[in-house]
Amino acid sequence: MNIAIIGCGTMGMTYAYNLGKMPGVNVSGTADLLKERAQDAASASGGKAYTDWEQMLDAESPETVAVCVPTYLHKEFVIKLARRGIHIICEKPAALTLEDAREMKQICEEQGVRLFIGHVVRFFPSYADAIHKVRSGKIGTAQMAHFKRHGSYPQGSELWYHDPAKSGGVIMDLMIHDIDYACWLFGDVESVYASVTDPSISGIEYAQITLKFQSGAIANLTGFWGYPGPFTTQFEITGDQGLIRYDSNQVQSLDLKTLAGLSKSQDAVQVPSSPALHDPYYGEVKHFIECIQSGEEPIVSISDACRAVEVALACKQSAQTGQPVPMGGTAS
């Protein structure tokens, strides 16, 4: 697979490191407006550095391009690449509006190219393990979940995150990870209710979301930009026969407690995931490349990505109005 990278910031470098060590993959080029960043990504991946992405495409003829530019530029690059007949792996969220996300999906389908959106949380071992345990009935019927995602504000060259018109803010950029995962867990959302602090007043951006699903399940999400500690993710999924907990600050990967275990007066069953040889971003992009080669459907589809955008936008509307927002259906 001949692949190139456009955008060599934090995520572009992550792709460069992973693609550079992936068997059967040749990173032919890395492009960024900042020459030094393009060169750093080229050094990590074995590709050639460019400051002009179109020149890179003309010179290297990649089959697939990883789009790691800021969110507000996703649509522009995805559509231009699709019209060149190039498959696309694009960072999340798909776009800042549902209309743009749907247009990206439509044009890629019309051009006969594959579009993948990097909702990488589905590839984190503990999150994937939790889904497997829920679907195998380990905790009975899952009815309630709580997700937390806390981190510092992006710094340095990533200050575009601070402009909601470019990043979508904490809900669209950070919390969309857990929005997508909650939808993967529980299905379509019936209504949302959200609140968020004003970072211009508080100096932090903290959001709380309640998602009510058509299945009757409820998920509560919190997201925090400006957290003073290490990046932290947590979740708890509760069923009628037990619960699953995860905390990234703990050594153990997963904590599974079941009513059956309690009835036998046993301690909670600790089920750690095996240490992974590669990080989840490696597994994600490897999966997408395999889907291009085989024609199979990915773990996270473009319709899933559109749904996550739709739910995130409804949450932002609720936070602005202070009222619950009903969902109109799926975003496929």
Rank of each mutant, 00 (worst) to 15 (best):
L174G: 01
G223S: 14
E190G: 13
A194L: 05
L174S: 07
Y153K: 06
K212S: 15
Q155G: 03
I204N: 13
S167Y: 06
D188E: 11
G239V: 12
R245F: 11
T238Y: 07
S191K: 15
T238W: 09
G223Y: 06
Y246C: 13
Q143A: 13
K166Y: 05
D178G: 01
M175D: 03
L159W: 08
G151K: 09
A165Y: 02
E205L: 02
A207S: 15
G216T: 13
D240H: 13
H162L: 15
L243A: 06
G223K: 11
A219M: 02
L185N: 02
G239L: 09
A207N: 04
G226V: 03
N220Q: 14
D173G: 00
C183N: 01
T197N: 06
T232H: 10
F186K: 05
F231H: 12
T197R: 04
M144H: 14
E190N: 13
G151C: 14
D180H: 12
G223V: 08
G168P: 09
S200F: 09
P164A: 02
I171H: 03
P228F: 06
Y206Q: 11
I176Q: 03
T233G: 10
D188S: 14
R245C: 08
E236V: 08
A165N: 10
I201V: 14
H177E: 10
D198P: 01
I244N: 00
M144I: 12
Y161N: 09
G140S: 09
S215K: 09
Q208L: 15
V170W: 02
G169W: 06
L174I: 14
F186D: 04
I179K: 03
V189E: 02
L174T: 02
S215R: 10
A182W: 01
V196E: 13
Q214F: 07
I237V: 12
D178Q: 12
G168A: 00
R149H: 11
F147N: 00
I171G: 00
D163E: 05
I209S: 10
S202R: 07
A142E: 05
W184D: 12
F231I: 14
G223M: 03
E158L: 12
P228G: 03
A145G: 11
G223H: 11
D198A: 08
K148D: 04
V192G: 07
E190M: 08
